[in-house]
Design a protein around this nucleic acid. Sequence first.
DNA 1: GCCAACGTTGGC
DNA 2: GCCAACGTTGGC
Length: 156
Amino acid sequence: MKYYLLKTEPQTFSWQTLKEMPAQTTIWEGVRNYQARNFLRAMKKGDLCLFYHSNVTPNIIPGIVKVVREAYPDPFAFDSRSKYYDGKSDPQNPRWFAVDVQLAEEFVTPVTREQLKEIPELAGMELLKTGSRLSVQPVSEREFSIIRKLGAKAGG
DNA sequence: GCCAACGTTGGC
DNA sequence: GCCAACGTTGGC
């Protein structure tokens, strides 16, 4: 099993919205960066992802989602009305992919970026690197387990 | 293939 | 709102 982190701006797609989705499941679409795309394609059913809210104060991880459908062509890339439309993506040879994820675990206490920065073992995390913009990124088992424990702890 | 210009991301 | 970091575009 592998671990990842998925970034989303709450104004685009929030944890709350996910909770209200049927079966608390959503397509993870709109990834338009090749490196992020490659991580999406590497995901296997059952892999777990930290759900990260970027571009908001505070930045938090409210919980964990799991991959319930492995990578398939991102339908939004072919929809000319979508902001994620990419005319250069050929349906016969799709350029962009999506996965489906389902809410797996809601943290008792959302984990904040501030908290993460205080933990020496997390200093190497991609998320915390200056200028990191990768919206889909791998997380080590160790990092994942530390963050999961933080979230499970009542009172932060 | 280089690289300047430009647009976007995202923490602060 | 600022701006550094980064990815992409396109002229040459």
